[in-house]
């Protein structure tokens, strides 16, 4: 059992990867201000470095150069190689459901890499476009966390609140507490929270979904099997594992696959999942369930919703109870 210590927290933020990056450093007792500032700076710096290498919107990034010259070997940095390796690994492990290289002509290898005398090189199959958006955030959050580990008793790194990596001492209790934003229009408060001592958490999905339909279209997630936006019964999913890139790949895959296949995949690949469905149900893998606390009223509401997608007065009551 982890004990709660008198802890002090220090927050900092920056803008990178198209969103806001938050770093929380926790110290037990007095801390050297310069040490903390340097650690935070290093964390924000590595996220910016990953962004510069893997952004699709920076023409000089390794990823943009690779997308502009498919079929050619190009010199790239270690960040692209690390994420490309993971992307290909999880494309295989998810049977192509997670695919960072988009829809294109059949190819044995979508992206390849090799280490030569002058450093790393990478190659992209013609007809494909690589986009490491989510998995790059998971990679960057984990890297930033590790940059701070020696300087603080506890670290949390959040990139856009959808990629969160944390380890060590939490500021107020024995474990970190991550609130889950509601994807449902009918519930404006958080759904509840997940408690865990360490790990990498990825949240994917939509916001503002109005209950009623059993499925929805997630515009920003492509289903590689159809080449179109994913149609799914999952509104939002949070995946917890010991690796940020695994959490990101599986949260995206769960959105595409839907509730039951997605949760089965998470369990098969050693991750825990919390799924919020289009019809209002809250579902978790057995490992995740004990970590989750729901806001008062949500549990009963979710049970009702889980059995039926019919609109009930419970939704209105939830708003009152949950506020």
């Amino acid at each position: 059992m982890r004990s709660v210590v008198e802890a002090h927290e220090s927050w900092s933020e920056s803008t990178a990867m198209g969103t806001v990056v938050h770093v929380c450093l926790v110290t037990a007792g007095a801390a050297d201000g310069d040490t903390l500032a340097n650690a935070a700076s290093a964390a924000h710096g590595i996220v910016a470095e990953v962004d510069a290498a893997l952004s699709r919107f920076v023409p000089t990034s390794d990823l943009s150069r690779l997308n502009a010259a498919p079929g050619r070997w190009l010199p790239v940095g270690p960040h692209l190689v690390a994420v490309a390796q993971a992307a290909e690994h999880y494309r295989t492990r998810t049977s192509g459901i997670f695919d960072a290289t988009g829809v294109g002509p059949p190819a044995q290898h979508r992206i390849r890499w090799r280490e030569g005398d002058d450093g790393w090189e990478a190659w992209l199959a013609p007809g494909h476009v690589a986009d490491f958006g989510a998995i790059a955030k998971g990679y960057a959050a984990d890297l930033a966390r590790e940059r701070c580990r020696a300087a603080a008793a506890g670290v949390l790194v959040s990139i856009g609140t959808s990629s969160i990596s944390f380890a060590g001492v939490a500021p107020r209790r024995a474990v970190w507490r991550i609130a889950i934003g509601s994807p449902w229009e009918e519930l404006t408060e958080t759904v509840g929270y997940v408690e865990t001592p360490c790990g990498s958490f990825s949240m994917s999905g939509v916001r503002g979904h109005r209950l009623g339909a059993a499925s929805l279209v997630v515009e920003h997630v492509l289903d590689p099997r159809t080449g179109r936006s994913a149609r799914t019964d999952v509104c939002a999913v949070g995946v917890l594992s010991d690796d940020g890139m695994r959490s990101e790949a599986l949260s995206t895959a769960t959105l595409v696959l839907g509730l039951r296949e997605g949760m089965a995949l998470c369990r098969a690949l050693g991750a825990e999942a919390l799924v919020l469905t289009a019809s209002g149900a809250v579902v978790a893998t057995p490992e995740m369930a004990p970590r989750v606390a729901l806001r008062e009223g949500v549990s009963e509401w979710a049970c009702r919703r889980g059995r039926s997608a019919q609109s009930t007065p419970a939704a209105a009551r939830l708003g009152a109870n949950g506020s």
Partner: peptide, 22 residues
């Protein structure tokens, strides 16, 4: 469906970070 295993949140607003879909 495992919703019945969840514990009720008494202090749900005292959290370290709020996760949301981007």
């Amino acid at each position: 469906v495992y919703v019945t295993q969840f514990k009720e949140a008494g202090d749900v607003d005292q959290v370290d970070v709020i996760a949301g879909a981007s």
